[in-house]
Amino acid sequence: MSAPSNPAAFDDLIHAPVRLRICASLAPVQWVEFAQLRDALGIADSVLSKHLKQLVDAHYAHIERFAKGGRSHVRVALTLGGRRAYVGHVSALRAMLDSEL
């Protein structure tokens, strides 16, 4: 019997409400522009920057700066490790809920 590829593991870093929402927003996409993510979450630039820095420092997210139409843009993506951590965290939350029923 093989081990699951993303074992359930509660992750304190991801569990913070804003970071959990960031990961949930990034998980289904390859990347998203900073402004789109900020608007979708309804938070200030500074709040998003602070939480993204923590995810980047943990190697859960990657930030890329690029130019488009002569303007500077920033896009954000989950790393492979970040996706694994997020999926494991969601699995752990589901397991907690299932054990309560």
Rank of each mutant, 00 (worst) to 15 (best):
R38Q: 15
I22Q: 04
S25V: 00
A40E: 11
A95N: 11
H59Y: 11
S2L: 15
L78P: 01
L97K: 14
V56H: 07
Y86F: 08
I14A: 03
H15S: 04
A77L: 06
A44S: 15
R19Q: 08
L80C: 13
S91P: 06
R83D: 13
A35Y: 03
N6C: 00
L55V: 06
V87N: 11
R21D: 13
S91L: 09
F66Y: 15
A58Q: 15
S49Y: 10
A85G: 10
D45C: 14
Q36C: 12
Q54S: 10
R71I: 05
L48Q: 10
D11M: 05
G88H: 02
K50F: 13
Q30Y: 12
Q36R: 08
A3V: 10
V90Q: 09
R19L: 05
I22N: 03
L101A: 10
I43L: 15
A61N: 11
L101F: 10
A35W: 07
Q36E: 14
R84G: 11
K50P: 03
C23W: 03
H59F: 12
A40L: 08
H62A: 10
A61V: 07
A95D: 13
Y86P: 02
W31H: 12
N6T: 06
V74S: 02
I14G: 01
H62Q: 15
V56G: 06
L20F: 14
E100R: 15
V32S: 09
H89V: 01
V74M: 08
A40T: 11
A77T: 03
L78W: 01
L101Q: 11
Q36L: 14
R75K: 10
A27N: 00
A16F: 00
A3K: 14
I14Q: 01
S5C: 04
Q54N: 10
S72P: 05
A44P: 08
P4E: 12
H15F: 00
V90C: 06
L52F: 15
A8T: 05
S91D: 10
G81D: 14
E100Q: 15
P17M: 09
H73E: 02
Q30C: 06
A58R: 05
H89E: 05
V47W: 09
W31I: 06
H73Y: 12
L97N: 12
P4D: 06
Q54Y: 04
P7E: 06
A27D: 00
L20M: 12
A92Q: 00
A67T: 11
V56W: 06
F66E: 00
G70T: 04
I14C: 01
M96C: 06
T79W: 02
E33T: 08
H62W: 12
N6I: 02
D12H: 05
L52E: 07
A24S: 01
A16L: 02
I14Y: 01
V47D: 09
D39V: 11
S72V: 08
L52Y: 15
D11H: 03
S91C: 07
K53E: 15
L80V: 04
A67W: 12
R94S: 14
F34Y: 14
R71H: 09
Q36W: 09
G82S: 04
D11F: 04
A40K: 06
L37A: 03
L52Q: 02
A67Q: 13
